[in-house]
């Protein structure tokens, strides 16, 4: 069960990611990013992270993505659709990224191959017989006890982002 769900979400993520980098129209790229983000939310559910999946949908798909779509539409020009969307280093970049993936994959499999051999046949989670555990309470406890300083720093970061966004997009009073 979990295996099929993983394959489904992985295909969703990979199709969305490839669409993001391959489609010419930036609007379509942003929409494909939404597909990939939904796939990531599904993977979070498979990993037992229910709160993360909810935050992913609420913050990413309906926050960041909508913001992206707004800016795409604000900076859209009619002839954008006929312009090439990639530069001439496409071949070099694809070779580099393929090499990076192979390198990461070799590292991952070499590092874990020995320890995973025993656990390979076991699913990461027994679906039958175990109630799904709500992670929200524990997450809140972690955020406000051991991680309280990063939590406060994060709020300062959000405030700085807010001020920065206003500062960058504000028109100067003299100019029209």
């Amino acid at each position: 069960m979990a295996g099929w769900m993983f394959i489904l979400f992985a295909l969703l993520i990979l199709a969305g990611s490839l669409g993001v980098v391959a489609l010419r129209n930036v609007m379509h790229s942003a929409l494909m990013l939404g597909v990939a983000l939904f796939g990531v939310a599904g993977v979070f559910l498979l990993l037992g992270a229910d709160f993360l999946a909810a935050v992913q949908v609420v913050v990413y798909v309906s926050g960041v993505l909508i913001l992206m779509l707004f800016v795409v539409m604000l900076t859209h020009r009619l002839y954008d659709r006929t312009l090439a969307q990639t530069n001439e280093r496409r071949l070099l970049a694809s070779v580099l990224c393929l090499a990076l993936f192979v390198m990461l994959g070799l590292g991952i499999t070499a590092e874990n191959a020995a320890s995973l051999r025993g656990a390979a046949d076991r699913g990461f989670r027994q679906w039958a017989g175990i109630d799904p555990v709500a992670t929200v309470g524990r997450l809140g406890e972690l955020l406000l006890k051991p991680y309280v300083v990063p939590f406060e720093v994060a709020s300062v970061l959000l405030l700085a982002a807010l001020v920065g966004a206003i500062l960058f997009t504000k028109r100067e009073p003299g100019k029209s």
Partner: peptide, 13 residues
């Protein structure tokens, strides 16, 4: 995902 993202960062105009 990371490799595809890097490809996009490197090639997008």
């Amino acid at each position: 995902m990371f490799a595809i993202g890097i490809y996009g960062v490197l090639t997008r105009r």
